[in-house]
């Protein structure tokens, strides 16, 4: 099976600190891959490199056979708009937009008309059981609701890969569980691969396999053949 997204010997430094040191990883279409590791191990940096947010100092990241490290910023932005989705731990919803408008934002950025974007967004909110906050602003919704809105926003463009960085990091167990269940179920339905950065085993347990980042290197668990 050909991997959908790969990192090959990726190195990245913040000044003198090596966040990634020859890290390699494969992500297959439709799988849920947990990126685990202690804090500061470089797992978020790896996620940002995979998503084309950061450009590695050396090494290669390919998506669907295309080398995204060689792409222009514009092309990578376009790729992020159409093929990738993102869920972060916090601070990702635009506070002045309503939840519905937040979900519709990636669609609007991709050029979908307002009405159509909002119709599709409403469906996703329903699906994630937060239709009732559609008209509210994120500040007026609870943390769990906010994360579900964020998940809806990541899914609404039907991306091929969703990058989730500690998506339940700011939630209690019950809310976290519910978000993960809805998130992973929805991702599996749409066939999106998920790269899930987490340091929580119970969250990682929603994955199909895990990769461990330690000191900037990746130890990747392969599927039993």
């Amino acid at each position: 099976m050909q991997p959908l997204l790969t990192a090959e010997d990726v190195t990245y430094s913040f000044g003198p600190t090596h966040a990634l040191d020859s890290a390699s990883l494969r992500v297959y279409a439709g799988e849920v891959l947990a990126l685990m590791g202690p804090s500061g191990s470089g797992k978020s940096t790896l996620l940002h490199c995979l998503a084309g947010i950061l450009t590695p100092d050396s090494g290669q990241v390919t998506f669907d056979g295309r080398d995204i490290t060689a792409m222009s910023d514009t092309a990578r932005s376009a790729l992020r708009r159409t093929d990738f989705g993102f869920v972060f731990q916090f601070g990702q919803l635009v506070p002045e937009l309503s939840c519905l408008e937040n979900v519709a934002l990636p669609l609007r950025l991709a050029g979908v008309g307002r009405r159509e974007a909002q119709r599709r967004s409403a469906e996703w909110l329903e699906r994630l059981e937060v239709a009732d906050v559609a008209g509210k602003r994120p500040g007026q919704a609870s943390g769990g609701q906010g994360q579900r809105v964020a998940v809806a926003r990541a899914l609404v463009t039907r991306p091929r890969v969703i990058f989730a960085d500690e998506p339940t990091g700011a939630l209690d167990s019950l809310n976290g569980e519910r978000v993960m269940q809805l998130f992973i179920a929805a991702a599996r339905d749409t066939g999106a691969a998920v790269v899930l950065v987490t340091h929580e085993a119970r969250v990682a347990a929603y994955s199909d396999r895990e990769a461990v980042v330690r000191d900037g290197r990746v130890r990747e668990q392969e599927y039993a053949r």
Binding site: A34, M36, A201, R202, A204, A205, Y206, S207, D208, E210, V212, R219, Q221
Partner: peptide, 16 residues
């Protein structure tokens, strides 16, 4: 440790 983690996660996935 890694081997053990994989084993643990395998079980956890099943339980999940």
């Amino acid at each position: 440790l890694d081997g053990q983690r994989t084993e643990h996660l395998r079980l956890m996935r099943e339980l999940t």
